[in-house]
Amino acid sequence: MSQIIPDVALIDNSEERAPLVLVLDCSGSMNDENKIGLMNDGLKTLSQELKDDPITARCGRILVIAFGGDNNVEIMGEWTDAMDFTPPNLYAGGLTPIGAAMRLALDEIETQKNEMRNAGVPYKRPILMLLSDGEPTDDWQGIAAACKNAENAHKVNIMSIGIGASANKDILGQFSNKGALSLDGLKFKELFVWLSRSIQAVSRAQTGTTVQLNPVDSWAQIST
């Protein structure tokens, strides 16, 4: 029986964490309009913004899951504190297995919670952000229901965001009780700046309090 090696970061830094999982579309269509390149640039912006804030650098905890490409669904590195986060360089190709990616994300969140509890590290409710420019090419209905159930049980806060006109907002919206939002054009940088501010707010909030996040109009397509 293999022994799980404890995360040194959780031993060295016992501050309350604000976990974030990014589930990112790397299917072939993300090559269109250089969406994959702009998303990579956005991840670099997110990394720098989080590191520039000393509290968030210690409290933010990040995992990136990519779907598409040659490996179908892949964890891009391990859970990492924001101060140590190195953005992956993502490449586009393949199909859109959103169901498998979201199932992996929920599993990873629960595993990370257990690891933090075992290390005596408190944590805020994790944020799970799904970004996709299409619709699932695998079985997704069951995991979509599981995502909503996890939200109802206050296990996770899920944001589902469609990229471009080809994104199926009706399906993407079924992964969250809040439905889906649409990215305004290709405002990846604005989205990730907003996300960094949200993690900063969550990091500073007292345990058990509800955090009021900033308006999304800097990056979301607002219907009139």
Score class of each variant (00 low, 15 high):
Lys124Arg: 15
Thr207His: 08
Leu183Gly: 01
Gly134Ser: 06
Thr80Pro: 12
Ile98Tyr: 11
Gln206Tyr: 04
Glu16Cys: 10
Gln200Ala: 04
Lys148Phe: 07
Tyr91Leu: 06
Val64Met: 00
Glu74Asn: 13
Asp84Asn: 15
Met116Tyr: 00
Ile4Lys: 09
Ile109Trp: 11
Arg58Ile: 10
Tyr123Cys: 11
Asn118Asp: 05
Glu78Lys: 14
Ser14Cys: 03
Trp140Val: 11
Phe67His: 04
Ala146Asp: 14
Val216Asn: 02
Asn34Glu: 13
Met102Val: 11
Ala92Phe: 10
Val202Pro: 07
Met1Asp: 12
Gly179Trp: 15
Leu38Lys: 06
Gly99Leu: 04
Thr137Pro: 01
Asn214Arg: 12
Arg117Cys: 08
Leu46Trp: 14
Cys147Ser: 02
Ala153Leu: 09
Thr80Phe: 12
Met129Val: 05
Asn40Pro: 03
Ile222Ala: 05
Glu49Thr: 02
Arg125Cys: 07
Asp53Trp: 03
Asp107Asn: 13
Leu130Ser: 07
Trp79Tyr: 00
Gln174His: 05
Ala220Phe: 03
Ile55Asp: 09
Ala220Tyr: 05
Lys187Gln: 07
Ser182Leu: 05
Leu181His: 01
Asp217Ser: 08
Ala180Tyr: 08
Ala105Gly: 06
Val156Tyr: 11
Asp133Arg: 00
Thr111Glu: 12
Gly28Cys: 00
Thr80Ile: 14
Ile109Gln: 11
Leu172Trp: 10
Glu108Ile: 03
Asp138Leu: 07
Leu43Gly: 05
Ser198Phe: 09
Pro136Gln: 07
Val73Glu: 04
Pro215Ala: 09
Met83Asn: 13
Ser198Glu: 00
Ser182Ile: 09
Leu191Val: 08
Leu46Val: 13
Trp79Leu: 05
Gly162Glu: 01
Leu130Gly: 10
Gly68Gln: 06
Asn149Arg: 14
Asp7Arg: 14
Asn118Cys: 01
Ser29Pro: 11
Asp84His: 15
Leu95His: 06
Thr80Asp: 08
Tyr123Gly: 02
Leu130Cys: 06
Phe67Met: 06
Phe67Asn: 06
Met30Arg: 11
Gly37Phe: 03
Ala57Cys: 09
Arg58Cys: 08
Gln221Arg: 12
Ala92Ile: 11
Asn168Gly: 04
Pro126Thr: 09
Ala144Val: 15
